[in-house]
Design a protein around this nucleic acid. Structure first.
Length: 770
RNA sequence: GGGCGAUUAACUCAGCGGCUAGAGUGUCUCCUUUACACGGAGGAGGUCGGGGGUUCGAAUCCCUCAUCGCCCACCA
């Protein structure tokens, strides 16, 4: 199918051998079995009730398939004359208010609130229905709100759900005046044959001409539309099949009750948690579900009738009526498609059969869907799963442990994508333009979990650039590997590795820890972004650049680190960007000695043992990076020639060894000639630009210095640093802060303050020297 | 009528109690340096919607207002 094709092209790593289709025989049997069980438990019944009817689709709809849209309409106030002795209308009347005057032809009563003094004497009297001439009674009913309209409401049991209930309570007749095509029928007398809209106009005009129309007010109210075709739905009484979701099928257990309980007691985790409230409110207030549809496509209801009014409800097609042997005719209606979808997790695994798949894979760990189908799908899977799996003794076993609700993708203007608007984006076109991996990454990181996002090309572009960056970095690693096969670096040999190796390996461990935690929290986008940042900003920007120096000098040890970090990086990124990572990994796998299966997709996912984790190494390397940034910053500000290789004096204390260890890298990546000394060392004669990182003083030799520009630069930096130091001092002088804040926060702040103070000192010294 | 979400750099979005608020795109300067110009180096750009409160400390928690969006509801 088209959608399966899209899923494949976007890299969904599904087990396609277990692909199922709604109308597959296995699912059909699950549907029938469920129906029959629910029927036998008395939860499914056929009944005449108010339904939502779509005149265009020609079918009943469930409440969920009706969209309520606010519309500017009118409230019509109509006078219904009171009938006196001998059936003559009196000059007195009751005025009712309605938004649908055309339904008055089917009125069979007028209702008022029993406590409404204004109508006390009217209750029980008869009214003469204008235009039609039928006599209808005034009844009293609690459902009427005295403060709305006139306090009197016309009762149309045939065309209004409320009135249907009122009518039942007062034994009012039901008149149906609107047919299944939304046209007036013979009950509408002179208006028969008109559409609902035309009838409304004609009736209002007639009422006005004959003096029955009191007045008209503007009124905004919501009108139900078919969610599929947007046609205004008609409330109609109709014989349909219903599922009673509140009725107990066992002591204390009902479909909605169990589905709500599973979430309340945490057996099912809803992510993000805020959707839990929506789910529970809906489940707690649920009404019977109209499950029959008058459509040609779907699972036909497994109910048969014979001419002698016998009804057969069973899973397998019956040959003849078991009671009288007459021929049977199957109910022509089909089930709401969500009835079968709701069986997904267990029916897909073979239920009602006792299959190995069902035993092994049920329940599903994580379920995922857009929040817009939470009630349609998630809610039904919960209900049916808990109900059906009782036959395995799993009455408390949920269909899935967690359900993730993601947001919707909107167009660049934030509009919902719809076929009618024509603003729908074909994911395959995006994938063809930017790559499926880029599409996946962009969509995954485009919004926080559960939030909607706008489809913007620049997000795709950024993701595509990342794929390209990854590709090129891997190309570099492979090029340097040549035909070598390397062993993974081993933490026991850590002392023999230089700082940058220890650093990137420590960072890689941290990445694994971070990704693991993020995935546990279902922060998929954050996990992807974290990997992106590691690979680009740490691996590519620093490690590869630094490794080049040693490789150029003939040192082969960085190759093992490069290969290992790339391997783990690809593994971590694979779930997010399966295509590039698999492709690159295929090229890489032969170069690493160790557990390298035939495909990345089946390779284990890295999980940190924290063997390389070393805070000291990370801090030292961070220092080196900052020193380099400062040097480059000075280069840029001083507008030094790109090809110039100025002398740089680094006067350091604590981190002097780290700087020495990475001296070659500094020389290469920042294009300078560094000289690392202690603080006591004297600078040679000449002009310098100064910087400072921690307790490392940086002096970049310059051709000549513009004192004014240098002073301005230092002053700006001084102002920022002083302000920062002041804030920290103030905070650290605060007794309450010191007593209440956690120790690590205070220590961190003290360290920062010390660093900031020495920076200020250094800046002041340089300013004085100028 | 209830409920939820959003409001952070020019744009699209992260961050959701702690150390000078981040990313991508765009923009400015420099660089065709031997993986990558779909690139590299550096920079500019934000009183985190308004107002109040809680706290040693708030973009982050509470209240309130505003604007936008969504969901639910038998709104004659």
């Amino acid at each position: 199918s088209r959608i399966a094709d899209q899923h494949r092209k976007l890299g969904a790593s599904a087990d396609w051998s277990r692909n199922v289709f709604t109308l597959d025989p296995g699912i059909a049997r699950a549907v029938r079995t469920t129906f029959v069980n629910l029927y036998n438990d008395g939860l499914i019944y056929r009944g005449l009730r108010m339904i939502n009817w779509c005149p265009r689709c020609g079918t009943a709809l469930s409440d969920l398939e009706v969209d309520h849209v606010e519309e500017a309409g009118k409230l019509y106030f109509i006078r219904y004359p009171i009938v006196g002795e001998g059936g003559m209308p009196l000059p007195d009347y009751v005025t009712v208010a309605t938004t649908r005057p055309e339904t008055m032809v089917a009125d069979t009563g007028v209702a008022v609130n029993p406590d409404d003094e204004r109508f006390e004497e009217r209750i029980g009297r008869m009214l003469l229905l204008p235009l039609i001439g039928r006599e209808i009674p005034v009844v009293s009913d609690d459902a009427v709100k005295p403060e709305f309209g006139t306090g009197a409401v016309k009762v149309t049991p045939g065309h209004d759900p409320n009135d249907w209930e009122i009518g039942k309570r007062h034994d009012l007749p039901v008149i149906i005046a609107i047919d299944l095509e939304a046209r007036m029928n013979d009950e509408a007398g002179p208006y028969a044959g008109l559409t609902v809209d035309d009838a409304r106009n004609a009736i209002v005009t007639a009422l006005d001409e004959e003096g029955f129309l009191d007045h008209v007010e503007d009124y905004v109210h919501s009108v139900g539309h078919c969610s599929r075709c947007k046609t205004i739905v008609q409330p109609l009484p109709s014989e349909q099949w219903w599922l009673d979701v509140r009725k107990e099928y066992e002591l204390g257990r009902s479909l909605s009750g169990e589905a709500a309980r599973a979430v309340r007691d945490g057996r099912v985790r809803i992510v993000p948690q805020r959707f839990e409230k929506d789910y529970l409110r809906w489940m707690d207030n649920i009404q019977d579900w109209c499950i029959s549809r008058q459509l040609w496509w779907g699972h036909q209801i497994p109910v048969w009738y014979c001419p002698n009014k016998h009804t057969v409800v069973q899973v397998d097609d019956p040959a003849a009526c078991p009671e009288c042997g007459e021929a049977l005719r199957q109910d022509p209606d089909v089930l709401d498609t969500w009835f079968s979808s709701g069986l997904a997790p267990h029916a897909d695994l073979g239920w009602p059969d006792d299959t190995e798949d069902l035993r092994y894979f049920y329940p599903t760990s994580d379920m995922q869907m857009g929040y817009d189908i939470m009630f349609f799908w998630c809610a039904r899977m919960m209900q049916f799963g808990l109900y059906n799996m009782r036959d395995r003794g799993l009455e408390d076993e949920v269909p899935f442990r967690a359900v993730l609700f993601h947001g919707l993708i909107r167009d660049a203007n934030g509009e919902k994508m719809t076929k009618s608007r024509g603003n729908v984006v074909d994911p395959l076109i995006s994938a063809a333009t930017y790559g499926a991996d880029a599409f996946r990454y962009a969509v995954l990181t485009g919004a926080a979990m559960g939030g909607d996002q706008r489809y913007q090309d620049d997000r795709l572009l950024a993701a595509r650039n990342f794929a390209n960056k990854l590709w090129n970095s891997a190309r570099f690693v492979l090029m340097k590997l040549g035909d070598r096969q390397v062993k993974r670096p081993h933490a026991l040999d850590r002392a023999s590795y230089p700082l940058e190796d220890r650093w990137i390996l420590s960072r890689l461990e941290q990445l694994q820890l971070d990704v693991d935690q993020l995935l546990r929290d279902y922060q998929l986008g954050e996990a992807a972004k974290t990997i992106y940042e590691f690979l680009w900003n740490e691996f590519c920007d620093w490690y590869i650049e630094m490794a080049k120096v040693r490789i150029a000098a003939g040192d082969e040890r960085p190759l093992s680190v490069l290969a290992h970090v790339l391997d783990y990086g690809l593994r971590l990124l694979h779930p997010f960007m399966p295509f590039v990572t698999e492709e690159l990994w295929q090229a890489l796998r032969g170069h690493i000695d160790g557990d390298m299966p035939s495909q990345l997709i089946i390779a284990w996912f890295p999980k940190s043992g924290a063997n390389w984790k070393d805070a000291g190494d990370e801090a030292a390397m961070e220092h080196v990076i900052e020193v380099n940034r400062t040097i480059r910053n000075i280069r840029a500000e001083k507008k030094l020639e790109a090809g110039a290789r100025p002398k740089v004096y680094l006067r350091a204390n604590g981190l002097a060894s780290a700087l020495r260890e990475t001296e070659g890298a500094t020389a290469f990546t920042s294009r300078v000639e560094p000289e690392i000394t202690g603080h006591e060392a004297q600078l040679p004669e000449g002009e310098f630009a100064f910087g400072r990182v921690g307790d490392t003083e940086i002096a970049v030799a310059l051709p000549k210095v513009d004192a004014a520009v240098e002073r301005a630069r230092i002053e700006k930096e001084l102002a920022e640093s002083s302000a920062h130091a002041e804030r920290l001092e103030k905070q650290l002088a605060n007794e309450t802060f010191l007593s209440k804040a956690p120790a690590h926060v205070i220590e961190g702040m003290q360290a920062t303050l010390a660093e900031t103070r020495s920076k200020v000192e250094g800046l002041n010294a340089r300013l004085a020297a100028l």
